[in-house]
Design a protein around this nucleic acid. Structure first.
Lengths: 129, 129
DNA sequence: CACGTATATACCATATAGAGTATATACAAA
DNA sequence: TTTGTATATACTCTATATGGTATATACGTG
């Protein structure tokens, strides 16, 4: 309930977020498009709202829900530490990683704002304890 | 149990993955570093292994677990559709997004020197709400 | 062989999430 | 006001995940 990860663990909630990425939606629209019961939609939206993934505005009897990306960024941030594992090819993605995990012993890049220092990137081969 | 999202919803499992990102670890090492009971570690590793997040090799009585990144990429892929929401700053990240989800929404950036021949995307078509 | 270490697993108890059904609340239209 | 629409919530039931304890299995060492 707390962590962003638990929130998005539920498939219906991911589906709702996937809908809201397109545009804001009313409860009824979500209900129809995802073929879920109305209470189910409301309950998931409640969870998402409490967790800060979405926000709602009132339009007569409707509530229009829209995305709030902050919590999803948390997931993205956690994921960053693993990206090195699939970024063998050097390109824009790698430079993105450099922002999160700085070790630019590279050549010319305009030297963006660096933050904390983390261990050098490396490939872990066999090492004995 | 199935989806990558449910697997990483568990905090201890995320901690284990966070350990394994550094280097491979034995069960005992994980147990000590994360201060978890041995059965708990074994059970989480079982889940992670069945789900394809880790793999193990045998070293006498030890089992050395190491990361397998594929399933985490799934999460990363799902997340891609939301990145536009927090990629207000235009840089390498944006170009990464262009590859995954082509419809950037911001205006000009100094257009750093391009490297590999990539199906260059126009980044000048603001249509996001 | 007996013993200690390393890991896996079976069993049990508990907590909690999600679905369904029914109902409450709010607004609009007639 | 009555009626219909849109959404939220209370209540109940059920399934499942997780942790603990105890034990099984496998290997190495003396």
């Amino acid at each position: 309930m707390e962590s962003a990860f638990e929130i998005i663990a539920e498939p219906n909630r991911r589906a709702i977020l996937g809908l809201l990425v397109l545009s804001e939606q009313s409860v009824g629209e979500i209900e129809r498009r995802l073929r879920m019961s109305q209470p189910a939609v409301s309950k998931h939206l409640r969870v998402l709202r409490d967790a800060g993934f979405v926000e709602a505005t009132v339009d007569a009897q409707r509530r229009l829900y829209r995305l709030k990306p902050e919590r999803l960024r948390e997931v993205d941030t956690w994921l960053a530490q693993f990206r090195r594992f699939w970024s063998a090819h050097v390109d824009a993605l790698e430079r993105y990683l450099d922002r999160v995990d700085p070790n630019p012993a590279k050549e010319a890049s305009p030297a963006k704002k660096q933050k904390s220092a983390r261990p050098k990137r490396r490939t872990n081969k066999g090492e004995r304890k």
